[in-house]
């Protein structure tokens, strides 16, 4: 269900699951656009030499995934804050999944709080986030 206004939202409702594109080509595209194109993000071999399991999805890209997920759910929403905690690396070319749930609704201000969790296939949390989103009252 696409969310248009605050009344469409219920406490505890889940956002549609979002599977972000963590492919090397997409991370490279992001890197070129943002300037975050260090080989740690775009070269598996280089990242392994630094001690990582593979190239890393930049944290800012993971944060961008969270915002995109919110916009897909509520296209007219205005994101007021996204706060992310990076628990473990998100590895390029590895499938991940983001879930989101509404955890607070302020009827007066139109603000909705959302928990966001990015996990890998083993259901291990890699990124935690919370977002404050304004919806038309």
């Amino acid at each position: 269900m696409t969310i248009v206004k605050l009344a469409d939202v219920e406490f505890g409702v889940e956002l549609p699951v979002f599977e972000p594109d963590t492919s090397l080509a997409n991370v490279q595209r992001f890197g070129d656009a943002s300037g975050w194109n260090s080989p740690r993000f775009t070269d598996h071999e280089h990242a392994r030499k630094e001690g990582f399991p593979g190239a890393l999805v930049p944290g800012i890209m993971s944060q961008g995934f969270l915002a995109a997920m919110i916009h897909r759910w509520a296209p007219g929403s205005v994101i007021e804050n996204v706060d992310t905690i990076f628990r473990a690396p998100v590895i390029v070319d590895v499938a991940h999944r983001i879930s989101g749930v509404v955890t607070d609704i302020d009827e007066d201000t139109g603000l909705v709080e959302i928990d966001l969790t990015l996990v890998n296939a083993a259901e291990e949390t890699r990124v935690l986030g919370t977002a404050s989103v304004r919806l038309p009252v």
Binding site: P20, F30, A33, G64, F65, M69, H71
Partner: peptide, 10 residues
């Protein structure tokens, strides 16, 4: 490009 890579569609 930044937005599309993150998955924005609007």
């Amino acid at each position: 490009d930044y937005a599309i890579a993150c998955g924005e569609t609007a």
